[in-house]
Simulated scan of single mutants.
Amino acid sequence: MKVTMRVDGADVAAEIDRPGESLLATLRDRLGRTGSKNACEQGECGSCTVLLDGAPVCSCLVATAQCEGRDVKTVVGAVPRPVRDAFVQCGAVQCGFCTPGLLVSVADLLGRNGDPSDLDIREALAGNLCRCTGYEKIIDAVHTAAAGLAGEPR
């Protein structure tokens, strides 16, 4: 089965051999888009988060067959540079495994709310698990990213 979709701004086609193949598997194994990480494969950790038609989803739970004609943005295409820079600057990147999903979720949050409260941030990141940072540095990074994005033309 051939599935065509737009990934990070480029039209792509993936040949899948089973209709239940996950978007995560297709991105990583068939399209070489390895930014999204494969961890729990149950939608519990958030490391595989991508934007599907602008909404954050766990790509391990979405069948590629459902993505025909849709727009997928991975960490490569969804995250503005100020968000990435803020994570580095604030020490919000430790082992890095959860980072792609966190970055996508933060980009989505800041696209909707340019000045989120700590509660807003915690709610937006509730589906993303990090075992290394303790989350405070991540929250600091979101505030830093928000300030950086506020200074950029939109």
Rank of each mutant, 00 (worst) to 15 (best):
T34V: 12
E152T: 02
A63L: 12
P153A: 13
C98A: 07
R6M: 13
C90R: 14
C98S: 03
H143V: 02
L23Q: 12
R70L: 01
D53N: 15
P116W: 09
A92T: 01
T133Y: 05
A39K: 11
V72D: 10
C90N: 06
A92L: 00
V93E: 04
A146M: 02
E15P: 10
D120V: 03
G9T: 03
C67A: 10
S22T: 12
R6Q: 14
V79Y: 06
T133G: 09
R112H: 14
S36N: 09
V93L: 01
D140V: 00
R81H: 09
E136A: 12
T26H: 12
A25S: 15
V106T: 11
G96K: 02
M5E: 10
M1K: 09
R131D: 09
S22M: 04
N128M: 01
C95Y: 12
R18E: 14
T133R: 12
T49N: 12
D29Q: 15
L52S: 12
L52G: 08
V75W: 11
C90S: 05
G20N: 15
L61V: 00
D11V: 11
G46A: 02
C130E: 05
R70I: 04
A150N: 05
V104D: 11
S117E: 10
G54F: 03
L110N: 04
P19R: 13
C48A: 12
T4A: 14
V79S: 09
M5Q: 10
A10I: 00
T133F: 02
D118S: 05
V75Y: 05
R6C: 05
L51H: 12
A55S: 15
D29Y: 06
A86Q: 00
L61I: 04
A65W: 05
R122L: 07
Q94F: 02
L24Y: 13
S22I: 03
V76E: 15
G96P: 03
T133N: 07
L119P: 00
P19N: 08
S22N: 09
A147M: 03
G134C: 02
Y135K: 07
A126M: 12
G77N: 10
E41Q: 13
P19V: 03
G54H: 07
E123Q: 14
V12I: 00
C130M: 06
P82A: 07
K137W: 00
Q66P: 09
Q94D: 03
M1A: 13
G114Y: 04
I121N: 12
L119D: 15
P82W: 02
R18L: 09
R154Q: 14
V62Q: 14
P153H: 13
D11G: 13
E21M: 15
M1P: 15
G20T: 15
I121L: 01
I139A: 10
A25H: 15
G96R: 02
V57I: 05
R81S: 07
P100V: 05
C67Y: 07
D29R: 14
T133S: 13
L102T: 06
S59M: 01
G43C: 04
C40N: 08
A92F: 01
G134H: 07
M1S: 15
G32E: 11
R28I: 02
A126G: 08
